[in-house]
């Protein structure tokens, strides 16, 4: 099933937090160099699924994963795979901007430094900031604290921080939920620019945003026992205009959620 146009693929993925099953039987292929949106009512497990893609769930005590996530043809949950390497190649942007309490420069340089790519740091940092459309705004304050930036700038800094590692995939967990409409628009523009070179997976509670930015869309829901399942997955235009599943239709027409 996986071919050149697939970047990440979940196969029969299940996730538990101790005795609570958070995800059930998720299978989906994330296309390369496109934007995939995951939508659904809150608590349906969309963020949990996203965190399965770079093994961030490993950090939560009591979490267990069954099934596979294929990346580059390898299961990232195989015994010989190091989660550090997974996270190095699959970047993540979080819900609330979370810059380190360090300078702008040090924030972007953090990833290259820990991963041993410290040779031409200035170049890497400038390039990443340019890609994140932040360079012009911060080039004169590279060595000032990142905490002084506005919320939208901080979030673009977090994107630049991820780009500095040249990841193949960028996971975004509701990246605009803490931002105002103008800052949100800037991030969305940025995502569209980046889409040609990176595979982006975005979790969003905002259906308009999913419709605006994504190529593919997945709709998730909770079952009776609160486990998240994938209801429907397909091209965004099709999913929003002609949903195949009754539950998807109810959700996008605003009948619940």
């Amino acid at each position: 099933m996986a071919n050149n146009s697939t970047s990440l693929e979940a196969r029969k993925l299940e996730l538990w937090y101790r005795n609570f099953q958070a995800l059930r039987d998720i299978s989906m292929a994330i296309p390369r160099n496109q934007i995939t949106a995951i939508i659904g009512p809150s608590g349906c497990g969309k963020s949990s699924l996203l965190r399965c893609f770079n093994r961030m769930n490993d950090l939560i005590p009591g979490s267990r994963v069954k099934g596979e996530v294929l990346f580059d043809g390898r299961n990232i949950y195989a015994a010989d795979v190091d989660p550090t390497e997974v996270r190095y190649r699959i970047g993540m942007v979080f819900q609330k901007p979370n810059p380190f309490p360090k300078s702008v420069f040090e924030n972007v340089a953090f990833g290259p430094r820990v991963n041993g790519l410290a040779d031409n740091l200035e170049e890497i940092v400038e390039h990443a900031l340019q890609r994140a459309a932040l360079w012009d705004e911060v080039k004169d304050r590279l060595h000032k604290s990142a905490m002084e930036l506005s919320g939208g700038q901080q979030q673009r800094l977090c994107i630049a921080r991820t780009l500095a590692l040249e990841p193949e995939v960028i996971l975004m967990d509701e990246p605009c939920s803490a931002l105002d409409p103008v800052a949100t628009l800037k991030i969305e523009d940025l995502m569209r620019t980046l889409a040609g070179e990176y595979s982006i997976v975005i979790v969003t509670h905002n259906m308009q945003q999913a419709a605006r930015v994504s190529d593919m869309a997945a709709f998730m829901m909770m079952e009776q026992d609160r486990a998240g399942v994938l209801v429907e997955y397909g091209p965004t235009a099709r999913l929003f205009t002609n949903p195949k599943d009754k539950r998807t239709e109810d959700y996008i027409t605003g009948r619940f959620g």
Binding site: D82, E85, L117
Partner: peptide
């Protein structure tokens, strides 16, 4: 910029 084997060697050191 991506250098897989150098990264891997470095990762091993970091792990140790």
């Amino acid at each position: 910029m991506r250098n897989g084997s150098a990264f891997k060697r470095h990762l091993k050191l970091r792990k140790i």
